[in-house]
């Protein structure tokens, strides 16, 4: 039982780590600020969710679990808002988005 939990937690952490890394690579590789926002979105959704859910499986039933899930909810609510604010500000402040 304990083994299954730690294996599942490890899987989530691995998925979260991989997507965080891919998102960061995207931030460096993408050609302009709008496309970079898409890459940052990967880190903010599946990257954060993977890492936090993996840690939540380690926490067991406690106040810690509630706080970890609350943190995930905050991240998933606030990051799109910040992302949209950034996209809007960039649209007003810059020329049109980069096209192929």
């Amino acid at each position: 039982m304990i083994d299954i939990m730690s294996i599942a937690s490890g899987m989530f952490l691995l998925v979260g780590s991989v997507f965080t890394l891919i998102g960061s690579i995207g931030i460096v590789r993408m050609p302009d600020v709008f496309t970079r926002l898409h890459a940052a979105g990967i880190t903010d959704t599946l990257g954060a969710a993977g890492v936090l859910l993996g840690l939540a499986l380690k926490a067991g039933f406690s106040l810690l679990l509630v706080k970890l899930l609350l943190m995930l909810v905050f991240l998933l609510l606030l990051n799109p808002t910040a992302c949209h604010a950034l996209a809007r500000a960039a649209l007003h402040g810059l020329r049109r988005p980069w096209m192929d």
């Binding site: 931030i27 600020v33 970079r36 940052a40 903010d44 954060a48 990051n79 402040g93 810059l94």
Partner: peptide, 14 residues
Amino acid sequence: TVYDRILAANAFST
């Protein structure tokens, strides 16, 4: 641009 830097700071804080 300044927006790239704000984006980087936001990603960094996450």
